[in-house]
Every structure is written in C-alpha cells, then in structure tokens.
C-alpha cells in the first residue's frame, strides 16, 4: 500500500466532488429560487422594451458545475476500473452506501488507524454541527450559505481522514 493507492486517495476524490457540487449548487439554488418566485425580477418591461436580467455567475456555475461533474465521474470510474485491474483481490465498487471505500482494514494496525481517523471525524462533527446550528439561529442569510457550511464540514471530514491515513503511510 502506498499514497497512490486509490483507497488511500478516496478522501481526496470525495473532496474534489464536494468542491464541484459547491460550484454547481450555487446555480441550482438560484434556479430553484427563481422557479419559486416565478422568475420575478428576471424579466423587466422598461418603456415597452423587454429586458432580461441575466445572473451570469449563477448560470455559469450551473454549466461549469455540470461539466466538472461529468469530467469527475468519467475520471473516477476510469480510476476505479484501473484499480480493480491492478488489485483483483481488493476490488472497489463505484458507489457504496454501506461501507465507505476509504475504510482501510487490511491488517490490525490499519484497522486501528481507520478507527482513530473515524474518531477524529466524530469529534469534528460533534463540534462543527452545533456551530452550524448556532450560525443558523443567529444569522439570517442565503440558503446557499447553509449548504456551503455543510459542504465545508464534509470537506474537513475527508481532509481529517486523509491526514490520519497519510501519517500511517509515512511510517
């Protein structure tokens, strides 16, 4: 096992996906808001001339996010295929809902490292979630900011997990 092993890199792939979804969600939240208010403010009639107020950053984020998602999933499934070809005894599935693919349990020390990494993530959530609840209570802000904070938690979660595994690999 080394740092280029896909199972070790899994948290980095997760981080990349969350960042892409952060970009995409920015536009999606805007689009949903527009649907809910019947596109109020988008179309304006000024002296008989129809003016469309394009929200370029939001529209761009939908397209850029979508494009990046497609590129991400193509690269991800190619990498999984490559990993399974190189490691026929340690095959990975693309999407797993039961056991995260980043859990490393090849031997007793790796099990201990995974347990320690999971413990760090638990501690982070036990502090991070109340902070977000406090933030939601105190600040009246855009829906997107709340979503952004949750994405940030997921990014920190994966970064903590990766850091613990890398410490082990450095030996």
């Amino acid at each position: 096992m080394n740092k280029s092993d896909l199972r070790v890199q899994f948290p980095l792939w997760n981080i990349a996906l969350w960042i892409i979804l952060m970009i995409w969600t920015y536009g999606v939240v805007y689009a949903v808001d527009m649907l809910l208010i019947d596109f109020k403010g988008v179309f304006e009639n000024v002296n008989g001339v129809l003016i469309i107020n394009w929200h370029v950053p939001e529209i761009l984020s939908i397209y850029i996010g979508l494009l990046l998602s497609i590129i991400f999933f193509i690269a991800y499934f190619i990498r999984i295929k490559q990993h399974n070809k190189e490691n026929p005894t340690n095959k990975l599935v693309g999407i797993s809902f039961l056991k995260p693919s980043e859990f490393l349990e090849d031997d007793e020390m790796l099990r201990q490292v995974t347990e320690k990494a999971t413990k760090n993530v638990y501690v982070m959530y036990s502090h991070g979630l109340p902070l977000i609840i406090f933030f939601l209570i105190v600040f009246d802000t855009s829906r997107y900011v709340y979503i952004l904070l949750l994405f940030l938690l997921l990014i920190i979660h994966n970064a903590l997990f990766y850091r613990e595994i890398r410490k082990f690999l450095r030996g």
Partner: peptide
C-alpha cells in the same frame, strides 16, 4: 505474517503493540 510494510515499521519503533 500478512500485514503491511508500514505496520512492521511501527512495531519495530515500538509505536504499535501487535496482537
């Protein structure tokens, strides 16, 4: 013995107590 190279390294340094 069926473990990773890193595990042997940690045991040698006394940083991991094997079962």
């Amino acid at each position: 013995v069926g473990v990773t190279r890193q595990t042997i390294g940690f045991i040698e340094k006394g940083e991991f107590s094997p079962s």
